[in-house]
């Protein structure tokens, strides 16, 4: 499976590079030139132009940067919140543990995308509710995994041994629980980033995520839908980029995911 991981890393490196360097090297993504609208891919416009004559490549680079930043922020918040609360619940036990677990179950009462949409409804088209919604839908996965793994490790004889030998809860969490938790969390982060990218693109595609003229991978496809017969490549390129991004995240975390 290390071949798959390598492929995943290569995909992410390529797309990450485009997101990082693209915006400073490529032309202004908002620059309209109606005379060169819907140009097919070629030497001047590598990925062609859209209906307003804007460079698809430049817009894609900006959109990639936007997607990656948003996904990383949302998943970062979810990891910190979920893992922290999970470890807290497992070490406290009792009533606090049950209350936090109930909160987690409650979050799962709605499918993830629906939860994001309910939050987005407060201010469709804005970034804050979008990233907040994605984080809200994801924290519970990190919470459940962290809680379950911490409970498992804390119940093992070696964790009991550490306590009997005079080590405090800080040592037990840092040295015994975290090393076991880290690979699982990394896998979950990979899948979480993929899910976040997909959700943002899907919501923007249907028009309640990020709105034009901000370049976004989902809404770029929507904008070009009316021109599908003339400009299929320009309409599909953003969707292909989403798929490559998600595939990259999935492949990179596949190895740990294969563990029983």
């Amino acid at each position: 499976m290390s071949g798959a991981r390598g492929l995943g890393a290569a995909l992410l490196l390529l797309l990450g590079g485009l997101a990082l360097l693209g915006p400073s090297l490529l032309p202004d993504p908002a620059l309209q030139d109606l005379r060169s609208a819907l140009q097919p891919p070629g030497t001047t416009w590598w990925l062609g132009t859209d209906h307003l004559g804007r460079s698809v490549l430049a817009r894609a680079a900006h959109a990639l940067r936007f997607s990656l930043t948003l996904a990383a922020t949302a998943v970062g918040i979810a990891v910190l919140l979920g893992t922290g609360l999970g470890l807290l619940a497992a070490s406290l036990g009792g009533l606090a543990d049950r209350a936090l677990a109930a909160l987690g179950d409650a979050t799962l009462a709605l499918p993830g995308l629906l939860l994001v949409m309910v939050v987005v409804a407060f201010a469709p088209g804005e970034i804050l509710p979008l990233s907040g919604g994605v984080a809200l839908a994801q924290w519970v996965h990190f919470f459940r995994v962290a809680r379950a793994e911490a409970r498992r490790v804390l119940a093992l004889p070696h964790a009991e041994a550490a306590r009997v030998l005079g080590f405090g809860p800080d040592y037990v969490l840092r040295r015994l629980v975290l090393p076991e938790l880290r690979p699982i969390l990394l896998t979950l982060v990979g899948f979480g980033l993929g899910t976040a990218v997909l959700q943002v693109a899907a919501l923007s595609f249907v028009g309640v995520g990020v709105r034009p003229p901000t370049p976004e991978l989902g809404s770029m496809t929507t904008e070009l839908l009316p021109y599908l017969p003339e400009a299929p490549v320009q309409a599909l390129v953003p969707a292909v980029l989403v798929a490559m991004l998600v595939l990259g995240f999935q492949l990179l975390s596949a190895d740990e995911g294969q563990k029983p």
Partner: peptide, 8 residues
């Protein structure tokens, strides 16, 4: 299939 967005 899991990587391709459903709309695509």
């Amino acid at each position: 299939l899991r990587a391709v967005p459903p709309y695509a």
